[in-house]
Amino acid sequence: GETKIIYHLDGQETPYLVKLPLPAERVTLADFKGVLQRPSYKFFFKSMDDDFGVVKEEISDDNAKLPCFNGRVVSWLVSA
């Protein structure tokens, strides 16, 4: 499998796309960081919350699996 991750960088209009050679349910924050090489950023991901619906959730645990929608991951990188 392959996972497409779209990421928005510090408010830039056009998002970036990276592809990881892993199925979406196995991709972790560490996998994503390894491709990006951007150490001083906070990582937020499109996520579903039972109370609020669609939210941007910050993930900082490198072992955390990334939230996935239709085989895609959507993220926002914010300068720390």
Rank of each mutant, 00 (worst) to 15 (best):
P15V: 06
I6E: 14
P67G: 04
I5P: 06
T3K: 04
G34D: 15
F52D: 15
R26Q: 14
V54T: 10
P23N: 01
Y41P: 06
P23H: 06
R38M: 13
G34I: 06
V18M: 09
F69R: 09
A64G: 04
T3C: 05
N63G: 10
L29S: 06
S40T: 13
K65F: 09
E25N: 12
S79Q: 09
E13Q: 12
T28H: 07
A64Q: 12
V78E: 12
T28L: 02
S47C: 15
K46Q: 14
E25C: 12
V35M: 09
K19N: 11
L77F: 01
D61C: 07
D31H: 15
I59P: 02
R26M: 09
H8A: 02
Y16L: 13
W76A: 04
P67H: 01
T28W: 01
D10I: 01
R38C: 14
R38K: 14
T14N: 12
L29P: 02
L17W: 13
L22M: 12
E57D: 01
C68T: 14
L9T: 02
D50A: 10
Y16E: 10
S60T: 12
F43D: 04
K56G: 04
A64H: 10
R26P: 03
E13P: 12
R26G: 07
P39H: 13
R72E: 15
I5K: 00
Y41H: 09
F44I: 04
V18Q: 01
K19S: 14
E13K: 13
G34W: 04
A80D: 15
G53S: 14
P15A: 10
L66V: 01
K42I: 01
E2M: 09
V74E: 14
Q12E: 15
R38V: 12
I5S: 02
L20F: 08
S60Y: 08
V74C: 04
P21Q: 09
G53T: 13
R26H: 10
P21A: 10
F45H: 01
L9W: 02
D10T: 07
Y7D: 00
Y7A: 01
P67L: 00
T14Y: 00
K46C: 12
R38G: 12
V55Y: 14
F32I: 07
S75W: 05
R72A: 14
V73I: 14
S47Q: 10
S79T: 10
Y41D: 03
D31K: 09
G71P: 03
L29A: 04
M48W: 13
V18W: 04
P23D: 07
E25I: 04
T3R: 04
V54G: 11
F45Y: 03
H8S: 04
I59M: 07
W76V: 05
P67N: 03
K65C: 10
A30I: 01
P23E: 08
A30V: 02
V55T: 14
G71V: 01
F43N: 05
I59K: 03
V78N: 05
F32D: 03
V35I: 10
E57I: 15
T14E: 15
Y7G: 01
F52M: 14
K42L: 01
G71Y: 04
F52H: 15
S79A: 10
L17E: 15
L29R: 04
S40W: 11
Y7I: 02
L22D: 05
I6V: 10
T14C: 11
S75V: 10
P21D: 09
E2G: 04
L20I: 13
V55S: 10
F45R: 03
D62V: 03
S60M: 10
V78M: 10
Q12M: 13
W76E: 01
P67M: 05
I59E: 03
I5E: 02
F45W: 05
V35S: 09
S40A: 12
K33F: 04
V27K: 07
V78I: 10
L17Y: 15
